[in-house]
Design a binder for these strands. Sequence first.
DNA 1: TTGATAGTTCGATCACGATCGAAACAATAG
DNA 2: CTATTGTTTCGATCGTGATCGAACTATCAA
Lengths: 226, 226
Amino acid sequence: MKEGPNIAGIAALIGDPARANMLQALMTGVALTASELAQEAGVTPQTSSFHLGRLAEAGLVTLRKQGRHKYYNLADADVAALLEAMSGIAMRSGMTRVRTGPKEPALRKARVCYNHLAGEYGVQAYDSLLARAFLVEDGEQLHLTGDGRSFLSELGVVLPDKETKRRPLCKSCLDWSARRSHLAGIVGTSLLSFFLEQGWAKRVDGSRIIEFSKSGDSRFHAIFSL
Amino acid sequence: MKEGPNIAGIAALIGDPARANMLQALMTGVALTASELAQEAGVTPQTSSFHLGRLAEAGLVTLRKQGRHKYYNLADADVAALLEAMSGIAMRSGMTRVRTGPKEPALRKARVCYNHLAGEYGVQAYDSLLARAFLVEDGEQLHLTGDGRSFLSELGVVLPDKETKRRPLCKSCLDWSARRSHLAGIVGTSLLSFFLEQGWAKRVDGSRIIEFSKSGDSRFHAIFSL
DNA sequence: TTGATAGTTCGATCACGATCGAAACAATAG
DNA sequence: CTATTGTTTCGATCGTGATCGAACTATCAA
């Protein structure tokens, strides 16, 4: 009778407040343990376990055991993209949380999206690389050019040698706040790591916010000008 | 305490089977009345009314009264994109409907996505236009070139004269089956209408499937070769 | 006017699923 | 070994929200 994939299934999964909180917490990209996620979601460890089981079963999160801990991650950049898209719809639908705190502007400016940089800074980096042909779009594919590779290497960004088919080097990800693409994929991840390691920016507590220092900010704008 | 938009809200909205069915029915792009949607979802008109109220309130659907009918539509291409993305995740998570009917291959081949063409045919058209520089990507923006405009006009596709800011002429939409972009926006809509009006293809009953005729198929491939 | 169809509102019911307490299991630390 | 911490299983509870029957409003067709 019915056709197509069961949308209601995963939607219902994400639709539970506790699970949604967990997923949003995982949007920071850091691996979290079951009990940390319980705390994040405001439920007891038992319930957390129950929810995480369902999320893992549906393939929305992955886990790796490490000693007596279980570390959870978002399964995939695609899952992150779905959550990001959902944020966009929720945002414009006026379905914001009770109190839209002072963090929101900071979120729009720079935040981590799973494992790469999003927000205004993410978009700017993406555009800047594109404008200088360090990055080229080919249909939906995205490629790092030779020039782009050497540019990043010279900066000090570490990149794998070869582009594998399985994990694309570059990938674009739609930004809910800017409604534009930012850079995902291995390059996106490496770039974010670079910023953090150089001390140009740092993560804020357990949120998705990325805070650029004064000097880091000016360096960023010097390099990724438009 | 919490930050960011309320993902759980819209997810829960989509998470109800009845509402999910309604939304998927609306993915065909045709406007449906409340009772048609009730039938589609397998619920009574009362329940349908209840659900549609919530969907409209959240801004996921729009309605226009016409006589004693209320015609419902998806609010936006963004909502369609969200549902499409969700289909992708649901698909690979093995959360397919009980029986994956014989329609599925047809869906992968060509289907309507809200109001434009998706599936293999949609992707091919997109790539073909891009390859001949009838369409150019500029960051996330997508533009129809002068050549592209005259090419389509010559074919007989009707297009509005000017590109307005509000409704972009072109827009890319991610395809869940092909994992590639296909053409959305006004051009995408016009193109689909063109195929249907010319009799190259027709819609299948109330599903999202687009069925190309023998002659329509060959004409399509002649024009949108790669 | 009467009759028919589309849609809504109200109220009551009912089922599903989230939640937690208690207890078990797992793995490390001392 | 024992003690402690992290995670899971089971069972019972409980609340939220979907559902439908019945009655009501609105629009159209005679």
